[in-house]
Amino acid sequence: MEDIKIDSSLSFGGYHWRVLDIRNNTALIITENIIEQRAYHDAYKDITWADCALRKYLNGEFYDNFNATDQSRIMPVINKNPDNPWYGSKGGTDTQDSVFLLSIEEVVCKYFGDSSSKLYNRGKNQKYWFERKDENNSKRIARLEANKGGIIWWWWLRSPGRVNVKAVYIHGDGNIGIQGNNILKGNISDGKCTGGVRPALWLKL
């Protein structure tokens, strides 16, 4: 694992990952692509990251697919889950996660450029605060790996949307849908749940 640097890529557990941060000989990594499509939760009800079906899946079935050697390198972390910064919907309790989704704050302020001024200075009538003009949008665009054409698609964050039957997501053009998509059906106009999943984890180097 030599020469691992922030923004470099690596292979681990059968996936390609992007390095977002390095601390104390561990690296925060996220899959380069959207690896699958899933609902945020398996019922249409108020929910937070702590209790949602997608968290259970990532820390259960998805984690269990790694072999014992790889599992020994995945470092559990305590994640903060802030309330939605525009609407005040509850982020829920802190969670201990081996595998997780990124939060709004991590995506907007830390790991894909710093657009925090737009996050904390909401304009009037904004649904997506970037309105296609933010210089960091292109850094958040992801492709659907399962599709042979690698089409650009939207992907979930763990943060709550405008209400707790929605979760925040990254739009296909890199905008952030802070109002959120339906936790069960995703983008309802698609006719089925199509929410993209980009797992993140801390890896021992």
Rank of each mutant, 00 (worst) to 15 (best):
G196P: 04
G91P: 04
E131Y: 11
N181P: 00
D173R: 03
K56E: 15
E135S: 08
N182H: 07
Y40V: 08
N121E: 08
D21P: 01
V108I: 13
I170D: 01
R198S: 03
L157E: 03
G180V: 02
T48V: 06
L58K: 05
E135F: 03
K5A: 07
I152R: 09
R55F: 06
D190R: 15
Y87P: 04
N59F: 06
A53R: 11
G149E: 10
S115F: 01
S115L: 02
Y120L: 09
Q126I: 10
I29H: 02
Y169E: 12
D3C: 12
F112M: 06
T26A: 12
Y15I: 08
D64G: 06
T93I: 13
K204Y: 06
I4W: 02
W155I: 06
E135L: 11
T26C: 13
L205K: 12
E36T: 14
A27S: 14
I29V: 15
N175V: 05
V19A: 10
R73A: 08
F12L: 11
G88S: 00
K118D: 07
H16D: 15
G13N: 05
F112D: 05
C109D: 11
K127D: 14
S9G: 03
N164F: 05
Y169T: 13
I78D: 10
G14L: 07
L157A: 05
Y169R: 10
Y120Q: 06
L54E: 04
A200D: 07
I29D: 04
V77F: 13
